[in-house]
Design a protein around this nucleic acid. Structure first.
Length: 847
RNA sequence: GCGAAAGUGGCGGAAUUGGCAGACGCGCCAGACUUAGGAUCUGGUACCGAAAGGUGUGGGGGUUCGAGUCCCCCCUUUCGCACCA
């Protein structure tokens, strides 16, 4: 150790020692219990930002903690290296996307190493390399074989700025997930993955992970899948053998239906309107709605058109008009609904606008009515004007033989009745749509499919994988896949007939790459399969995953889907890929000239460069500040003075260790029982309390309070204020114990300086050479010798008494009542009662 | 509009889950050492008050011996979803 704390020297020294010793390389065949600690892999933009630093500092703290506890920890990193920015760079600056990407990776790898994150670099992977994306293609073919990958023409989300298709997840909220541009709709032929086949499991299996994932993520996923229980009902078309099928969750309201409303895109319309004078009007209306939607204008006022077609309510026999309207979506349910204005807000609005009849068929039920017999069947006047729709459950009225039943009951029984009579059935629908994975981009994994004039669409045979991306292409930025312009790539021979054929020129969504990457880490160099299932079985599921919540319904739902698919083809055994998930908060900074705190970004000019921080304060202090400044899931507001505080703390600890180094090195091992002074006992108590506190904090990733506890322990040590040269054997023992605990528990936060100080304390081997090192609290030593019990009078703090921890209730009551200040207050009053909370508090109630 | 979460000093945040509100840090104030200090060290720092004492966890009510914590109403902020039948 040097006398002074020089972060740069210490950090370089230990980074080299770790690399040379292969300290963080993990072996699969290790008898110790495994722990898989994973952070979301970065896109190699070229520069680490503070959000990355936070993400990896959290993960690294946990990885160190688990290693020190004796776990065999897998802590890998890789690169999500396919995607848009490489292609933008190619268009704007004429660079080769591959070179650009590799350069960025090299630079960011250096930054991560400078931060000292304890990755097993021997497992590094990158999505853009053929030995990785070969397996993307392999999975695609497996899905194709099982009918889970398919091609269809449909209206897809189109980002006009990036000129590519987006999945529904990537255009959630009607804006592009990357550039926030409003998305448009386009008709294109695209590849889709049948995530809808797994919709039920994606909801049901939430039960398996609900203890380990944040509620808000699970809620969003559950909403996104949008499971909805209801019924399909067929309405026969009058004077036709056609039926219009609707989906409803409220079959109990069917007597209140005043119309059938269809989506203008409904395919049945053509037939229903054949020969109708209104056909041209309906077509024109459909065109108009289409234009509205293509422009992304969802907030339009409700509009509709009566088609003149009539349908028959199968329950009441009533004849209903069939309308088309802009508020009915083709993508959900059956593309047609029964309109029940009395009990649905949208239908109510629509009925008001077009003066359609509104009829009440559900009456509110009060608690008293629930127990009353019989239920009213005609409560309320059917023709009475309703001012709002009533959307709650209640009791059916004006509903023929069903009147008087409760909604819950009617929903069940009416669906069964419909099924019995062949005009419907109970059904479950989902909001989630299949995952569109085609991208009209160059920088991605090519879709491994060939089109032959004679044999049609032919999958690339497995032994011809990977379909390698060409070295370069013309980046015109026109929106067509650049691969289409690369003749050597496109033109190929049919694997079946060897005749001339063309390759698919689209590439896959980069979310395919990230759906299974952490399985590859377990067996990263396997060239016979994506990974060895047995090896993966030893490591997965991931014990702790850490990343931003922006991926709640993108990456995190895709990877769950992928895991289930891999399970179904026998590659993995678990239903779920990740046991615990932490969504860390954003790192924000003040926007100059304003009072607003926003996520750091280049365009706002409020970014902070991690490299500059490392240079100025050291990697340890940067990491310590980031972990200390806020709870991991909260927003973290950047503060330069906060990071200075972190350096100050480290310097104090370092100096303390340096001061004691010599004495500790020459101290003889304690012989026999030691007599500890009260101060030394207080220090030891704090030491053991801190061990207990931090060990439990780590289980919940309460890292900010762990750091606070370390500071408290240090403050106690400083208060102890023993002189190294003159301290007694017992004092030296207490100091050594405190310092060693402090240094070991600092390692997850500030590993470099912790290693340096550990060495300074006389341990040449390095913190991870002697395992396990994490201290265990002695509850007896952590126990207080005497307690200061607050005494309240009528709930207000008035005094305190000193008591031993095993004081009886009676003794405590007596000493509270004997207390001078309490007596002054109780004098002349009646003591009504005395509440004694053992070891906690006494409250004297007087009148 | 619907849904969820959250409101604690000047700031970030603690509070063993109903029991001493404000741990720890930042900032600020005072002092020491200094030619100097945006370094370091020591002390102080919720608010009102000279003090005794009183008041305080967005506001109002309630339960309780006791409420930041539980219940009801309201306000504000943030996030998510936005015609999902």
């Amino acid at each position: 150790m040097d006398e002074k704390y020089f972060p740069e020297q210490i950090e370089t020294k230990w980074q080299r020692a770790w690399a040379e010793g292969g300290v963080f390389q993990t072996k699969t065949d290790d008898p110790r219990e495994k722990f898989y600690c994973l952070e979301m892999l970065p896109y190699p933009s070229g520069f680490l930002h503070m959000g990355h630093v936070r993400n990896y500092a959290i993960g690294d703290a946990l990885a160190w903690f688990k290693r020190l506890q004796g776990f065999n920890v897998l802590h890998p990193i890789g690169w999500d290296s396919f995607g848009q920015p490489a292609e933008q760079a190619a268009i704007k600056r004429g660079v080769n996307p591959r070179d650009w990407t590799e350069n960025n990776i090299a630079h960011m790898r250096g930054q991560l190493q400078r931060l000292g994150i304890s990755y097993d670099w021997s497992r590094e992977i990158a999505a853009h390399r053929p030995d990785y994306y070969k397996w993307d293609q392999w999975f695609f073919l497996k899905m194709l074989e099982r009918g889970l990958a398919y091609k269809k023409t449909s209206q897809v989300n189109w980002c006009p700025k990036e000129e590519t298709v987006l999945s529904n997840e990537q255009s959630s909220g009607g804006i592009c997930w990357r550039c926030s541009t409003p998305v448009e709709k386009r008709d294109l032929e695209q590849w889709f993955l049948r995530i809808t086949d797994y919709a039920e499991q994606l909801v049901a299996d939430i039960k398996q992970i609900e203890d380990g994932w944040p509620d808000k993520v699970l809620k969003r996923q559950s909403d996104w899948v949008g499971r909805s229980e209801g019924a399909f009902i067929d309405f026969a078309v009058k004077d036709s053998d056609r039926k219009i099928r609707v989906f409803t969750t409220r079959i109990d309201t069917i007597y209140g239906a005043n119309a059938i409303v269809m989506s203008p895109e409904h395919p049945l319309l053509n037939e229903l309107l054949a020969g109708s004078a209104l056909k041209t009007d309906v077509d024109a209306f459909a065109q108009k709605v289409r234009a509205q939607r293509a422009a992304g204008r969802e907030e339009e006022e409700k509009e509709g058109l009566n088609t003149g077609v009539l349908a028959i309510n199968p329950f009441s026999g009533e004849i209903l008009p069939v309308w088309v309207a802009n508020y009915v979506l083709m993508e959900y349910g059956t593309g047609a609904v029964m309109s029940v204005p009395g009990h649905d807000e949208r239908d109510f609005e629509f009925a008001q606008k077009y003066s359609l009849p509104i009829r009440q068929v559900i009456a509110p039920v009060t608690h008293d009515q629930l127990t009353a017999e019989p239920m009213p069947t005609t409560a309320g006047d059917a023709s009475a004007e309703m001012k709002h729709s009533f959307t709650e459950y209640g009791v059916l009225i004006n509903s023929g033989e069903w009147g008087g039943k409760l909604s819950e009951v009617a929903i069940r029984e009416m669906a069964a009745y419909a099924k019995e009579h062949g005009f419907g059935e109970a059904a479950v629908t989902y909001r989630i749509r299949d995952w569109g994975v085609s991208r009209q981009r160059f920088w991605g994994a090519p879709v491994p499919v060939i089109y032959c004039e004679k044999d049609g669409m032919v999958p690339v045979p497995y032994n011809q994988l990977p379909v390698v991306l060409p070295d370069n292409a013309a980046f015109t930025g026109t929106g067509e896949s650049p691969l289409a312009g690369v003749k050597e790539f496109v033109n190929t021979n049919c694997p079946n007939c060897n005749g001339p054929a063309r390759r698919d020129t689209d590439t896959m969504d980069t979310f395919v790459d990230s759906s299974w990457y952490f399985f590859r880490y377990c067996d990263p160099r396997n060239d016979a399969q994506p990974f060895d299932p047995e090896i993966v079985q030893q490591w997965t599921p991931v014990d702790q995953y850490i990343g931003g919540d922006s991926h709640a319904v993108m990456h995190l739902i895709y990877t769950r889907f992928w895991n289930k698919f891999m399970r179904d083809i026998g590659l993995v055994q678990s239903d779920e890929p990740v046991k615990r998930l932490l969504t860390q908060g954003m790192v924000t900074n003040r926007v100059e000239g304003t009072d607003e705190w926003k996520a750091m970004s280049k365009s706002l000019g409020n970014g902070v460069d991690p490299d500059e921080m490392i240079t100025a304060f050291g990697a340890d202090a940067t990491r310590l500040f980031v972990l200390f400044a806020a709870p991991v899931e909260n927003e973290l507001r950047w503060s330069e003075s906060g990071i200075e505080g972190a350096v100050r703390f480290l310097r104090r600890v370092y100096t303390m260790v340096w001061r004691w180094q010599e004495r500790l090195a020459t101290a003889t091992a304690p012989t026999g029982a030691m007599e500890f002074s009260p101060e030394a006992r207080t220090l030891r108590r704090k030491t053991h309390q801190t061990i207990a506190k931090i060990t439990s904090d780590f289980e919940q990733l309460h890292l900010n309070t762990s750091v606070a506890a370390l500071m408290e322990l240090f403050n106690q040590l400083a208060d102890f204020n023993a002189d190294p040269a003159r301290a007694s054997e017992a004092d030296v023992f207490a100091v050594r114990e405190a310092l060693e605990v402090l240094v070991i528990m600092l390692a997850p936060f500030t590993p470099h300086v912790a290693e340096e100080m550990w060495q300074g304390l006389g341990h040449p081997g390095g913190l991870l050479r002697e395992v396990p090192r994490w201290p265990v609290a002695d509850p007896e030593l952590a126990q207080r010798e005497e307690l200061e019990i607050p005494i309240q009078v009528n709930g207000k703090l008035r005094s305190r008494v000193i008591a031993s921890p095993d004081v009886s209730e009676d003794e405590l009551r007596a000493s509270a009542l004997a207390d001078e200040r309490v007596r002054a207050l109780t004098d002349g009053h009646e003591v009504v009662k005395v509440i004694v909370v053992p070891r906690r508090l006494v409250n004297v109630v007087i009148r």
